[in-house]
Design a protein around this nucleic acid. Structure first.
Length: 360
RNA sequence: GUUCCCAUCGUCUAACGGUUAGGACAUCACCCUUUCACGGUGAGUAUAGGGGUUCGAAUCCCCUUGGGAACGCCA
């Protein structure tokens, strides 16, 4: 006895039928053009991903293909366009499956053969909710700003819903060569930022330097530093790539190579640049000033020398250097960092740290 | 409401009737260690529920439940 709510649909009042007298249109109404769908039988869609899907024809409405002003509608245009362009495969989101039987009927009515259809499932946000502008859906340029390279994003995305055995990493060429519809998943996937970061890291670790240098340059400038005022980008990348998952992170952690330190990290300075660091820094400045060739190996020997001389663990000597040089207690290996920064700047920053520690 | 789609570890997934249900991310433990990392070793964690079919079901069929999509003179 409950009021059945069904799909709102055209009542078919102007649907031409044999022997039917069509009513007269009201004054001043611009007529539309509808597609006369069969009312019996069924439409079978053999989807490359979802398999056989059967639609009952009585579900199909007589959709409008041209508006009152004569402009054709989307569902009609795509059909015509696919025909004109000789499209063989339509690959699209599965939010279009319900449009497909209508499109198939129109194509057939126009005397053409329908293309192959492949309906890919949607990508959900990490909480399983639909992706939207408000919720997780980002433009590709935003992924760039987050420090992802195009290949990394492509790689992460291609594995979302498609697989090739256990393989996780693919070059673009591999993606193209190995892609197949048989291994596209029919179920929706969630976007997992953590794994995207992992993929990005894998790319950073293995990418040819000249492929990422321009992007690194771009990110450094966004950090407000001049990439020309410091070591060669490639050399910094080599030192940082192991510990950075994105180019943004790499740029953030590399600004000290290209600009003076504005201030020390509070906690790190309190811990490593206290009064007891003064003699350590003094000894370091003395030993490092004496270094002949400013090379990592020699620098390392000098640092080790200081540790031995003061009977300290290497870490006790290395950490104050890190804070003095980079502003914080985290950096690439200290010998490499000093070498890259150069003798002048290194010694200057150590002196500044010594002055800071003396006051502390 | 109607129609359609989907369902394996927390996440991405492998398996195309027979496996101790595999890998990856994440997590935890240990090792390595000059910080942070990288790397190495190991651990825990899954076939939504119920019926069938079959000698045998994660795989095939049905139902339930739970997600999602589409129902415009938008695209």
């Amino acid at each position: 006895q409950q009021a059945r709510k069904e799909k709102p649909r055209y009542d078919g009042r102007w649907r031409p039928e044999a022997g039917k007298v069509l009513p007269t249109p009201p004054e001043g109404v611009k007529p539309v053009v509808r597609f006369k769908n069969p009312q019996e039988g069924e439409v079978v869609l053999n989807d490359l991903i979802k398999g056989k899907i059967v639609f009952s024809s009585d579900e199909l409405d007589d959709l409008i293909i041209a508006r009152g002003d004569g402009v054709p509608t989307y569902n009609f245009c795509v059909v015509v366009d696919d025909m004109d362009m000789g499209i063989t495969h339509v690959i699209r989101g599965d939010d279009h499956v319900n449009n497909t039987p209508r499109q198939i009927n129109m194509i057939k009515a126009l005397g053409a053969t329908p293309p192959q259809y492949a309906h890919v499932s949607m990508i959900l946000g990490s909480d399983g909710a639909k992706l939207s502008k408000r919720h997780g859906a980002l433009g590709v340029m935003e992924y760039r700003a987050m420090g992802f390279t195009p290949d990394a994003i492509l790689n992460y995305l291609v594995r979302l819903g498609w697989s090739h055995g256990d393989q996780e990493l693919f070059t673009r060429e591999e993606m193209i060569a190995k892609f197949d519809f048989d291994h596209v998943s029919a179920s929706p996937a969630r976007f997992d930022m953590e794994k995207a970061y992992w993929v990005s890291h894998q790319y950073l670790k293995t990418a040819p330097l000249d492929a990422i240098e321009p992007e690194f340059d771009w990110h450094l400038r966004r950090q407000g530093v001049d990439p020309a005022k410091g070591p060669a980008l490639g050399e910094v990348i080599v030192q940082q790539r192991e510990r950075c998952r994105t180019l943004l992170e790499m740029a953030e952690k590399s600004t000290f190579f290209y600009a003076d330190i504005k201030r020390y990290n509070e906690k790190d300075a309190a811990k490593h640049l206290s009064a007891k660091a003064v003699p350590i820094l003094a000894a370091l400045i003395e030993h490092l000033s004496a270094v002949g060739e400013w090379q990592a190996e020699v620098i390392q020997a000098a640092v080790h020398g200081v540790a031995e001389q003061l009977a300290l663990k290497l870490g006790d000597v290395a950490q104050p250097i890190r804070v003095a040089i980079s502003g914080a207690a985290v950096s690439p290996p200290i010998d490499q960092t000093l070498q890259l920064l150069g003798r002048e700047k290194s010694l200057a920053r150590l002196s500044a740290a010594q002055a800071y520690a003396t006051k502390a």
